[in-house]
């Protein structure tokens, strides 16, 4: 690691890296790319502990990493990115940390819309998924402001799950449907998987293609359970979130793209055989 960081101090290396990443993105774009990717950003606190930083600084480093990854995602052409920012269970953490996370969420959301660089450059509309009733009012203001200001963007979507759990998502969807049935707007016999999906937080998004969790923990931790349990590639990456570099994500995308390309080619060949 030290050799790599030493090489990085060379003149022009940084410039070359940025250029190489751009080329890599252009290359990836010519093949299949997932439509919807979800991230569990795990490992910020361990990162802080290892580097002897404050927990708050660990979370800030995590946000920096997120910005790099998001940039790559939208450059490559991924339409929807969903990130797990805060779980309902996270309210059990010490109040100091919860407050710090809320503060980060508020300032970063406002920062995104004030600078507007990323949101406007890629045409991202920001959505916040989760239980609004649990969010303090000043953060709620920031959420409303950022969603309102980016509402017109249609190229891509950024879903921030805050505070979210997948079970709560499923339960909310079921409750909404039961409520509608009680008012006789829905016939119970017509309820199906699609209807449940249409009442979830992710209703307008394409189906989830890939879920990435960092820090080597091999659990879903109540995130996107319904969306990821079939027809979805789940990747558990053994590195902390602030150390998760675009290169690493690129290699995951490359493997995914190759697998899809092989599948498409098979389909094509089968179709050709049918024609003959």
């Amino acid at each position: 690691m030290s050799i790599i960081s030493w090489i990085r101090t060379f003149p022009l290396v940084q410039y070359f890296m940025v250029w190489a990443q751009d080329v890599f993105v252009s290359v990836l774009k010519t093949g299949p790319v997932p439509q919807h990717v979800a991230f569990v950003m795990d490992g910020n606190r361990r990162f802080a502990r290892r580097r002897k930083l404050e927990v708050r600084e660990g979370h800030s480093a995590g946000f920096e990493s997120l910005a790099h990854i998001l940039e790559m995602c939208y450059q490559v052409g991924i339409k929807t990115v969903t990130v797990y920012a805060f779980s309902i269970e996270n309210f059990k953490r010490p109040p100091v940390e919860v407050n710090a996370l809320m503060e980060i969420a508020r300032t970063k959301l406002l920062q995104i819309i004030h600078h507007g660089d990323m949101a406007d450059r890629f045409g991202i509309s920001i959505r916040v998924l989760g239980q609004r009733s649990l969010v303090p009012s000043d953060v709620l203001d920031a959420i409303d402001k950022s969603t309102e200001m980016t509402k017109g963007n249609t190229t891509a979507i950024l879903n921030i799950c805050f505070p979210y759990t997948s079970r709560d998502d499923i339960a909310t969807s079921m409750r909404d449907i039961v409520q509608e049935s009680e008012k006789r707007n829905i016939d119970p016999d017509t309820i199906d998987e699609h209807m449940l999906e249409q009442h979830m937080f992710t209703k307008d998004c394409p189906p989830l293609d890939m879920l990435v969790r960092t820090s080597g923990v091999e659990r879903l931790s109540d995130f996107m359970l319904w969306q990821s349990h079939q027809n979805c590639v789940v990747e558990f990456v053994d590195c902390l979130w602030p150390e998760f570099e675009p290169w690493r994500f690129g290699s995951i995308l490359l493997r995914w793209g190759r697998q899809k390309a092989v599948e498409y080619r098979k389909q094509e060949m089968e179709q050709d055989q049918k024609v003959i």
Partner: peptide, 14 residues
């Protein structure tokens, strides 16, 4: 790593 449709409600913390 493919849950192959394993009941989603159950895999929360597994």
């Amino acid at each position: 790593l493919d849950l192959d449709g394993f009941p989603p409600w159950h895999v929360r913390l597994s």
